[in-house]
Amino acid sequence: MELEKFERNNWGSCRLSSLVPPLCRNQHCCLGIDEAGRGPVLGPMVYGICFCPLSNKQDLEELKVADSKTLSEAERERLFEKLDSLKEYLGWALQILSPNVISTSMQQRVKYNLNALSHDTAIALIQYALDSGVQLREVFVDTVGPAEKYQEKLKQRFPELEITVKPKADSLFPIVSAASICAKVARDRAVKSWKFLEDLGDVNLDYGSGYPNDPKTKEWLARNLDPVFGYPQFVRFSWSTAQTIVDSRAVPVRWDDCDGDEKSSSKGSQSMLSFFARKKDDTKHQPHRFFQERKLETVKDL
Amino acid sequence: PDQWVLIARDSLLDLPKKPGDGALFTRLRNPSTGEGALFLFSSCAQQLFEIKVFKEDYHSWFVGQTVQHDGRLFFATPMDALFLILYYLIKAEKEQGKFQPVDQVVVDEAFPSSCILLQCTRAMQSLHHVTEEKEIGSKKFYKYNKEKTLKWLKKKVVQTVKALKSNNICVGGSVHSATFIRSKQMLDVTEEDYTRYAHGLISEYVPEELSADLLKY
């Protein structure tokens, strides 16, 4: 798993994949999806898929890839190497969502929450497998949200596939567990090899668990907050823990849509007649249209 | 705040020949509104510049390794100092109606720097465009002349029309949002549209009554 592509450009989104085994193009296959790094306030989130012919499901069970959450980082690495060696029949693909992509997606003007981002990423990976010629028949998906709605959404999108969405699917379906291993290993490596884009000198990487309720992580966030620029792009700005520290310790910044937000929460809409009423300063000298159109004004005082 | 961002000619940074003669920001009377406005004299008052500001909500500047909260962008554009002197000539005509030396006309307690206008050589050499002149001994006396002024202003309007055309400024009469700037000239724009637009621009620099007379002219 070469992460160099992501390491070079860790502010964007990155797709990594193995070669597609020829067997997967000739035989009916199953595919598992899982994620890694949904909860932390630091580092990327990774979506992973694994796929193999239905006839090889048993081989995965024998590998004992289930219960990946109980494994250490080193054990996960070892398991991944094992999975990667099964090139004859097992393929994988990953979508790495950088903290910057997560933050900008969640904070854009049109609502786009983490669930929607997650679903779209999963859908894109399934589509990638189909586009790569994998003869998919069964898809197994792990979820933290309501399973039925998500399953319905995927079934509508891929009506030809048999889709199963279940919480803790990684402990029920080995193909999901295999995907989970791939995703977790990718996230571990991405975090370990993270290159700070920002010229911050020697950044102390002792940030604890990276989870928002970890006091050590909160302390790291506060220590690495620049009052004008906020955090390094290693941080998910859209997490409320991160936002709270910014609100209290960074300088206020106002954007073009700030007034819009304030106005929309105020008393009520204006009467149509108010647009036709003469304004108080109509008799005041109006600058020539040349200046108004270009937002140029006379200066009375600096 | 003690820092602003301004676009101006390089020559304004030239060191003056004598200390104290350098470029000077000062408030003078805007001839159209009668209110104070910021202007800039180059060193030795060779040239007068009007200060305009581009002002839009929600801007700040990065200047080197600093943040400047004030997101305005100032422009210093050269202007004919005669417009400002004209204001005082018209006022003197209304109040006294007689020939006077120009240094007795361009006096403004509220804007003491107005006397610096008299150092603008080019403007001083152009007074005859807007006045009748009398010379007694070595001293010159001036009296505002409306007809001559209108003739002079018409030339300004004609020059402005040329500049509007060569810069492809949209002068069409359609109603649109103030922030919508057409990139192409509308096809049905007439010479009158240009003239009215130019008259409007020149009117920014003359008293209202004179603007009305100029429009009729």
Binding site: V228, W255 | Y58, F62, H69
Partner: peptide, 22 residues
């Protein structure tokens, strides 16, 4: 020129966070 108003005058670590590009 920034598309936002930063309510502060003073030092900012611009070269640490921004790379000028033409």
């Amino acid at each position: 020129l920034l598309p936002c108003e930063i309510q502060y005058d003073g030092h900012a670590a611009v070269d640490k966070y921004f790379t000028p590009t033409i």
